[in-house]
Simulated scan of single mutants.
Amino acid sequence: MLKGENTRKHIIAKSAELFNQRGYAGSSLSDITELTGIKKGGIYRYFASKDEIAIEAYQYAGGIVNRKIKEALDQESTAMGKLLVYLQVYENVVEAPPFIGGCPLLNLATECDDGHPILRERARKGLDSTLDAMKKIILEGVQSGEFKANLNIDALATFTLSVMEGGIMLSKLEGDNRHVRMNIESLTAYLKGMCLL
């Protein structure tokens, strides 16, 4: 791999950690130069703006989380098990999140929902992608006879994601994983009520 490509990846990786912990607004270009050890001129050799770094950093962080979710999904055979994976990946969010700082989608969405249109659009794409993946799992569960045929697929996907992100937010804020863990238990009980098997 070329040195320039390695440098670019280094900037993205370090910026992803910074943005996911401090937020976009709370992170300056000076913070990025300090964290990466690369001067501003060097940063601008690879990126036109802080926005460009933020977009790539979000994609990087999201990619790491998505790989961890996919690895866990591959271990599950039921639709119920697969839906619960989304919460289980964050079961130890306080001490060992799948990406430092917690959920990149949650962090970006809460920071940029009213302010930064470019980053808001990235968060919206992440939301749509996650909901679509959950809907696909639920549909497969309905088609296989695991879930009730009259199940509202869209509503269950929204509910699952809301329970996931709410648990992450509460656990991170309180510094206690109990919220995510209670939500796993509650969602498990709820999904059992939706199952035919």
Results as ranks from 00 to 15, higher is better:
residue 120 R to P: 10
residue 75 Q to S: 12
residue 17 E to V: 13
residue 20 N to G: 05
residue 107 N to Y: 06
residue 39 K to C: 01
residue 68 K to V: 14
residue 71 E to G: 04
residue 103 C to V: 08
residue 6 N to T: 00
residue 31 D to Y: 07
residue 85 V to L: 05
residue 122 R to K: 15
residue 68 K to I: 14
residue 117 P to A: 05
residue 122 R to S: 09
residue 48 A to S: 12
residue 43 I to A: 01
residue 56 E to T: 04
residue 33 T to H: 01
residue 128 D to L: 14
residue 116 H to N: 14
residue 144 S to N: 08
residue 45 R to A: 11
residue 79 A to I: 07
residue 129 S to K: 13
residue 57 A to P: 00
residue 136 K to D: 06
residue 68 K to G: 03
residue 58 Y to R: 06
residue 81 G to Q: 09
residue 35 L to S: 05
residue 74 D to M: 09
residue 119 L to F: 07
residue 122 R to N: 10
residue 93 V to L: 02
residue 20 N to Y: 07
residue 113 D to I: 14
residue 126 G to V: 05
residue 70 K to N: 15
residue 74 D to P: 11
residue 64 I to W: 04
residue 75 Q to W: 10
residue 100 I to A: 05
residue 124 R to T: 15
residue 81 G to M: 08
residue 36 T to W: 03
residue 97 P to W: 02
residue 28 S to C: 06
residue 42 G to Y: 10
residue 138 I to N: 00
residue 18 L to Y: 07
residue 16 A to F: 07
residue 140 E to N: 11
residue 80 M to L: 03
residue 50 K to R: 08
residue 33 T to Y: 00
residue 141 G to E: 02
residue 141 G to T: 06
residue 32 I to Q: 01
residue 7 T to P: 01
residue 113 D to E: 09
residue 49 S to Q: 03
residue 50 K to T: 01
residue 91 E to L: 03
residue 77 S to K: 11
residue 103 C to G: 12
residue 69 I to R: 15
residue 110 T to V: 12
residue 87 L to K: 10
residue 49 S to C: 02
residue 50 K to P: 07
residue 7 T to D: 00
residue 129 S to W: 10
residue 39 K to F: 01
residue 84 L to V: 09
residue 72 A to H: 14
residue 138 I to V: 04
residue 13 A to M: 04
residue 36 T to K: 02
residue 107 N to L: 05
residue 8 R to Y: 06
residue 87 L to S: 08
residue 92 N to W: 08
residue 38 I to G: 00
residue 83 L to N: 10
residue 117 P to T: 01
residue 54 A to C: 02
residue 125 K to C: 08
residue 112 C to A: 14
residue 21 Q to D: 01
residue 132 D to N: 12
residue 45 R to D: 04
residue 142 V to W: 07
residue 66 N to L: 12
residue 101 G to E: 02
residue 87 L to N: 11
residue 62 G to L: 03
residue 27 S to D: 01
residue 27 S to N: 02
residue 93 V to D: 03
residue 63 G to W: 10
residue 136 K to F: 01
residue 37 G to F: 07
residue 41 G to V: 05
residue 74 D to Q: 14
residue 119 L to S: 08
residue 110 T to K: 13
residue 34 E to L: 03
residue 22 R to G: 07
residue 90 Y to I: 04
residue 29 L to G: 00
residue 106 L to N: 13
residue 85 V to F: 13
residue 23 G to C: 07
residue 103 C to F: 06
residue 66 N to T: 11
residue 132 D to Y: 09
residue 141 G to P: 04
residue 137 I to V: 07
residue 129 S to P: 06
residue 67 R to L: 15
residue 141 G to D: 09
residue 80 M to I: 04
residue 50 K to S: 00
residue 14 K to L: 03
residue 142 V to E: 08
residue 32 I to N: 01
residue 30 S to I: 06
residue 129 S to L: 11
residue 54 A to P: 05
residue 125 K to Q: 12
residue 36 T to H: 00
residue 76 E to I: 06
